[in-house]
């Protein structure tokens, strides 16, 4: 009864991979179930929350609506590909330092969307960050620590020596 598996080759987090899977599977399912990369999460599977975001050829997309078969020869980046060896990516570092990850479930998606933003625009303003992240829902943080983390990481990626502000960590006086 199950369809014969299809096989594709693509670049995943900088490395070539080949994987076989049922042909109707989405990239989300292929990553989580056939490649055991469970860092990519899901919240609706209908493109309505942004939780399953990955980068496809550098652009953030909804992996729940990308067919696995459509990824032949393409470049996919997931949260597992962000850190450089044992060093956290500056975005990961900033998210951890500021508490931008509370439950942590939407975090991989926000990290990847922000990664794409900073690749395009190393110095985004707050409104540009809000626009870029407007397709990712978070129920824990109210987004504020996420904005601050993106700004902190952006500054560090630009080579600035930036630290979280006192207001951000302790509130206003």
């Amino acid at each position: 009864m199950p369809d014969p598996k299809a096989k594709i080759a693509f670049e995943l987090n900088g490395e070539p991979v080949e994987v076989a899977f049922a042909p109707h599977k989405t990239l989300l399912e292929v990553l989580r179930e056939d490649l055991a990369l469970t860092g990519t999460k899901h919240g609706c599977e209908l493109g309505e929350c942004g939780t399953c975001t990955v980068l496809l050829d550098g652009a953030p997309v909804l992996s729940c609506l990308v067919l696995g078969l459509a990824c032949e020869g393409r470049r996919v980046k997931t949260v597992e590909g962000l850190a450089q060896g044992s060093r956290l990516h500056p975005l990961q570092e900033a998210f951890a330092a500021l508490g931008a990850a509370q439950c942590g479930y939407c975090t991989p998606a926000f990290l990847l969307t922000a990664d794409a933003l900073l690749t395009d625009n190393p110095s985004p303003g707050r409104d540009e960050i809000k626009q870029a992240l407007s397709g990712n829902l978070c129920r824990c943080t109210g987004y504020i620590k996420i904005y601050e983390a993106v700004e902190l990481a952006a500054a560090r990626l630009r080579g600035e020596r930036a630290e979280p502000t006192r207001e951000s960590l302790y509130g206003s006086r």
């Binding site: 493109g47 942004g50 953030p60 997309v61 609506l65 990308v66 626009q131 397709g135």
Partner: peptide
Amino acid sequence: VSTPLLRNM
């Protein structure tokens, strides 16, 4: 239309 993520697709 929708979200930046969806517009990329």
